[in-house]
């Protein structure tokens, strides 16, 4: 369960003064639901997700993740989410197994449980073959699989994916999409930021569209179709234009 109310974020940039990255954004997403966050580059999606993950503090507004307040209880928030940042990297000289063990230990997982969980995820993401290879020897797809395994390692009830399939081939994307579906079946709360309309159609129960820091649509995919026609991409462009 995630709920945010009236989130704003203002960055102070040298020489340019203040830049408003997010303005009065409110939404909710519930367990068993995949919530899509849509918007062009620079719309404020990543800022919004970073505020939810407690990496950034909002200038205004409030939020809760599984009952933990993002301002007063950031530690509680962090243990209940799995966060996959856009372009998230890996430790080049460590193997996927070592990376997973490192984060598992930091999340306080017991050794036996951790090992069992790593084996389970290795099977889910077909990683067994490269589990002991240094990360800098892995392909982009392999790396992303390791990153996603790392995100869900501690079985968090809330999962935040920031553009999880960007730059990946169809096969790897499909594995990831299937995994997101599985998360929904397991009654997890999933936020997915993307600008790939096909993924939105396949996965998202509800969609929020952000542009220039403001949320101007929050509803289901059928609702978009009702208003703007069958072609989702066309509808998206139209909506962005309307705001601009």
């Amino acid at each position: 369960m995630i709920s945010v109310r009236d989130l704003s974020k203002v960055y102070k940039v040298k020489k340019k003064g203040e830049v408003v990255a997010l303005q009065g954004v409110s939404f909710e997403c519930r367990p068993g639901e995949v919530f899509g966050l849509l918007g062009p580059n620079g719309a404020g999606k990543t800022t919004c997700l970073r505020i939810i993950s407690t990496a950034l503090k909002p200038t205004n507004g409030s939020g809760e993740v599984m009952g933990h307040d993002i301002l007063t209880d950031p530690a509680g928030v962090r243990t209940s989410i799995g966060f996959l940042a856009a372009n998230s990297g890996l430790y080049a000289r460590l193997t996927p197994k070592e990376v997973l063990r490192y984060f598992g230990t930091l999340f306080g997982m017991e050794k036996a449980k951790l090992n069992a969980r790593i084996d389970e995820l290795a099977e889910t993401f077909e990683m067994t073959e490269f589990l002991n290879r240094p990360c800098d020897k892995l392909s982009t797809g392999m790396k992303q699989k390791v990153n996603i395994a790392r995100t869900v390692l501690h079985s968090p009830p809330v999962i935040i994916f920031d553009e999880p399939t960007s730059g990946l081939d169809v096969l790897t994307s499909r594995t990831i999409i299937q995994f997101v579906k599985k998360c929904r079946e397991e009654q997890k709360t999933v936020i997915l930021s993307t600008h790939i309309m096909a993924e939105v159609e396949k996965l998202c129960d509800r969609v929020a569209i952000i542009h220039k820091g403001q949320l101007f649509f929050n509803g289901t995919v059928p609702e978009i179709r009702e208003k703007h026609g069958d072609d989702l991409e066309e509808a998206f462009i139209q909506m962005v234009k309307e705001v601009a």
């Binding site: 970073r50 530690a75 966060f83 998230s88 984060f103 930091l106």
Partner: peptide, 8 residues
Amino acid sequence: ETLLLAPQ
């Protein structure tokens, strides 16, 4: 970013 979002 990932490291700092772990609970430590």
